[in-house]
């Protein structure tokens, strides 16, 4: 479930990156972040499947819920990291302009 949620986040980020008009939103960051994690969880899933066989695809409801909760919090953490980098790098200079305006007030 975590892998699935992360893959969907990676696909959405990639589509948004492809449709971007400029790079001011730094959409490459969430793409790389979520694809990197998805590929690593794929490795984990391969071993899980090798160990459990078909049972790997039939998790307990409680386990699935916990994994979904983890997947969503992973996506939230990835998005927070992207937002933090975006605000610090400030490619459009919006944060700097806003801070300057505050200082002048």
């Amino acid at each position: 479930m975590t892998l699935l949620i992360c893959v969907f986040a990676a696909i959405i980020a990639t589509v948004k990156w492809y449709k971007r008009k400029d790079d001011t939103l730094m959409l490459g960051i969430p793409c790389i972040l979520f694809w990197g994690a998805s590929l690593m969880w794929l490795g984990d899933a391969i071993f899980g499947y090798a160990e459990d066989g078909a049972a790997f695809f039939e998790p307990e409801a409680a386990e699935m819920l916990n994994d979904a909760y983890l997947g969503l919090s992973v996506v939230a953490l990835g998005l927070i990291l992207w937002l933090a980098i975006l605000l610090i790098k400030d490619p459009k200079g919006i944060v700097k302009a806003s801070l300057k305006k505050k200082a002048e007030q």
């Binding site: 694809w35 990197g36 994690a37 590929l39 969880w41 919090s73």
Partner: peptide, 20 residues
């Protein structure tokens, strides 16, 4: 650098999973 970002990003989110 693309490879490094892929590895850093994945390792960061997997580290969070291990904390979880």
């Amino acid at each position: 650098m693309i490879l490094a970002y892929l590895l850093w990003g994945g390792a960061f989110l997997l580290c969070y999973e291990h904390i979880w």
